[in-house]
Simulated scan of single mutants.
Amino acid sequence: MLTSRTVAYLNVDVGVSGSGVDASATPQLDQLLKQASKKVQNPDNGTESLYDMWMASDNSLIGRLGGGGSDYSAFVQHIGIPSVDMAIGSGYAVYHSLYDDFTWMEKYGDPMFRRHVT
């Protein structure tokens, strides 16, 4: 049923971990990802797009979804559904730790939750 009804899978395991953009995808979604990011406002600079923020970051290339790194694995590797894994920032220091909670995010990660809205 999934193969006949699913257009794409969007994985946002670590939605916000800092500034910049980190994205990986299957190749057929590269252009869609770029075009969509041009229509979203940069949460840190209202005169730029998310695409501008992304291109200025160290992770300006779209990575490839390989291995078995996250929840997208079953969609990509077992049934061939085009997928994207993306986040604002990279290197989430408290991932799956005792501090991976709302309080940490509210105080340190994204105090105004602008990046989460993006």
Rank of each mutant, 00 (worst) to 15 (best):
residue 94 V to S: 00
residue 59 N to G: 08
residue 79 I to E: 04
residue 103 T to A: 12
residue 112 M to D: 12
residue 67 G to V: 03
residue 54 W to L: 05
residue 10 L to M: 10
residue 48 E to L: 10
residue 7 V to H: 11
residue 42 N to H: 07
residue 43 P to W: 08
residue 67 G to I: 04
residue 92 Y to L: 07
residue 114 R to E: 09
residue 50 L to P: 00
residue 15 G to V: 08
residue 54 W to A: 01
residue 51 Y to L: 08
residue 117 V to K: 15
residue 115 R to P: 00
residue 68 G to A: 12
residue 67 G to P: 02
residue 35 Q to K: 13
residue 116 H to E: 11
residue 30 D to H: 13
residue 109 G to N: 02
residue 30 D to W: 05
residue 61 L to R: 14
residue 89 G to P: 03
residue 28 Q to V: 09
residue 109 G to L: 01
residue 2 L to M: 13
residue 76 V to K: 02
residue 28 Q to S: 15
residue 106 E to W: 05
residue 66 G to P: 01
residue 13 D to E: 13
residue 118 T to R: 13
residue 70 S to N: 12
residue 56 A to N: 14
residue 24 S to T: 05
residue 35 Q to P: 04
residue 52 D to N: 14
residue 105 M to S: 06
residue 12 V to C: 09
residue 79 I to D: 03
residue 69 G to D: 11
residue 114 R to N: 13
residue 77 Q to N: 15
residue 117 V to L: 15
residue 72 Y to V: 00
residue 78 H to S: 15
residue 88 I to A: 03
residue 65 L to R: 01
residue 109 G to H: 00
residue 19 S to W: 09
residue 23 A to H: 01
residue 83 S to F: 01
residue 61 L to E: 15
residue 54 W to S: 03
residue 6 T to I: 10
residue 47 T to Y: 10
residue 105 M to T: 04
residue 89 G to D: 06
residue 7 V to A: 14
residue 22 D to Q: 10
residue 77 Q to P: 02
residue 53 M to R: 07
residue 32 L to C: 09
residue 79 I to C: 06
residue 3 T to L: 07
residue 37 S to R: 05
residue 66 G to M: 06
residue 60 S to R: 10
residue 94 V to E: 06
residue 55 M to P: 04
residue 73 S to I: 04
residue 74 A to D: 09
residue 108 Y to E: 08
residue 94 V to W: 05
residue 59 N to Y: 14
residue 8 A to I: 01
residue 65 L to Q: 01
residue 39 K to V: 10
residue 82 P to K: 03
residue 21 V to K: 00
residue 56 A to D: 09
residue 34 K to W: 06
residue 6 T to K: 02
residue 62 I to E: 00
residue 57 S to T: 11
residue 16 V to S: 00
residue 62 I to N: 00
residue 98 L to I: 14
residue 50 L to Y: 04
residue 107 K to A: 07
residue 117 V to T: 14
residue 98 L to M: 14
residue 54 W to R: 03
residue 50 L to K: 04
residue 15 G to C: 06
residue 43 P to M: 11
residue 75 F to V: 01
residue 85 D to M: 04
residue 107 K to L: 08
residue 27 P to F: 05
residue 12 V to S: 09
residue 117 V to Q: 15
residue 112 M to L: 14
residue 52 D to H: 06
residue 18 G to A: 13
residue 77 Q to T: 05
residue 23 A to V: 14
residue 39 K to F: 09
residue 12 V to N: 06
residue 64 R to Q: 08
residue 93 A to F: 15
residue 72 Y to T: 01
residue 99 Y to P: 02
residue 95 Y to Q: 08
residue 39 K to Y: 08
residue 72 Y to N: 02
residue 111 P to D: 03
